[in-house]
Write a protein that binds this DNA or RNA. Structure first.
Lengths: 204, 204
DNA sequence: ATCTTTGTTAACCAAATGGTTAAACCATAA
DNA sequence: TTATGGTTTAACCATTTGGTTAACAAAGAT
């Protein structure tokens, strides 16, 4: 049995292979030939279906971004309390990334490489907004549920604590002198440790 | 008057230019010709002084890493209390990065691109260790100064909160709908906000 | 059966790129 | 003045790389 359901059509096989190579090596490091090899087809097919490296890359990037955006949307536009959001997001996000380990790095690197391109996505795609989250934080602060904190800073803190370890994995492995297995255990523990850490800090 | 003191010798000019280009575009995106142009010299000089792109890159990377390591060393091997460390590190690190905005991204991206290469640096260079920090956290927890927390998790939290915003700058600017100026103000506020956030969470 | 469209391949191409070379340049010591 | 040595340059080279082309195969359409 094949690994994915896209193995039938060439176009899907190309996209799968392109995801793999682009996410591991980035736009600059990726080679069209390598993508073709990984897909098991002729290099000309890449151009037949996607015209150019740039367009193939954009297909992969948009695809990746539309995986990540809904994750963030949960914490921004869900109706539960801040405390519940923090707990759920932390646990869910860490699980999610374990299945897409190259994703955060890929998105962040390519965003930095070409911020202009990213600005387009921001305009077009269903790009989450902070407004609701900020209001909610203010309200809970006023109601005495949370200690005073700025919504923007809290948002940055939450995504920092959750995303950074996956972006800087080799650095963390280096400092902690651990390998893949111990790293995974550590991230598993973080599902609770991070939300405790945040809640401890903000809850009255 | 020239901007740096290295403007005299060609070798220094090359390294300066290489830093610029490599840190902005990464190993794969950087072009030897562009480095030569930026240094205002002939491309052959790059090879005369550094033999190959790889060696020039390594010079730049080691240089960058040896800027970052001492920063982390402060929080790991300084003698002050955890609370003071957190306060000082947060404030110092954010100032430091404002002067080297491309640094964290560059290091993280290249570490991910080639973890093997990074393992060498770890062995050779003065690579900070977590041991002292972990002991210190345990002691302060036992002494009732801190709430119970795992030293490794705390370390990850501290560096996540401090480094991530500079790695994911375009993402944050996008979500918060702000430009460079407001971003800088936000980071300035973080010098206090982050250490408060951490201390609030861990101090008894 | 044959025509037409779509999909696929091998061979090819021009530009870009890391690296080399041989000659020129230039300061300094003999 | 003239060797001598390191430094710098323009021109060159081989390889890689994104992209194209022309021929061919498969599958519908007529």
């Amino acid at each position: 049995m094949a690994k994915t359901n896209k193995n039938q059509d060439t176009e899907g096989q190309i996209l799968d292979a392109a995801k793999d190579v682009f996410q591991k090596k980035g736009m600059d490091g990726a080679r069209m030939q390598e993508i073709a090899n990984e897909a098991g087809i002729n290099k000309a097919m890449l151009h037949y279906y996607y015209r150019s490296k740039q367009l193939l890359f954009e297909a992969v990037f948009n695809n990746a971004f539309s995986l990540l955006a809904p994750q963030l949307n949960k914490i921004l536009n869900d109706d539960s309390s801040i405390e519940d959001k923090v707990k759920n997001f932390t646990s869910n996000y860490i699980s999610f990334i374990s299945n897409h380990p190259y994703l955060p790095n890929f998105i962040i690197h390519e965003m930095n490489r070409n911020p202009k391109f990213f600005e387009n996505i921001q305009r077009n795609a269903a790009f989450p907004t902070l407004d609701k989250f900020k209001n909610q934080v203010s309200t809970e602060v006023e109601n005495g549920i949370l200690k005073p904190i700025d919504g923007e800073q809290l948002f940055i803190n939450i995504i920092s604590l959750n995303i950074f370890p996956f972006v800087a994995t080799p650095l963390i492995k280096g400092f902690l002198k651990i390998e893949e297995k111990a790293f995974k255990q550590l991230m598993e523990k973080r599902k609770i440790a991070v939300s405790e850490f945040i809640i401890n800090s903000i809850k009255k």
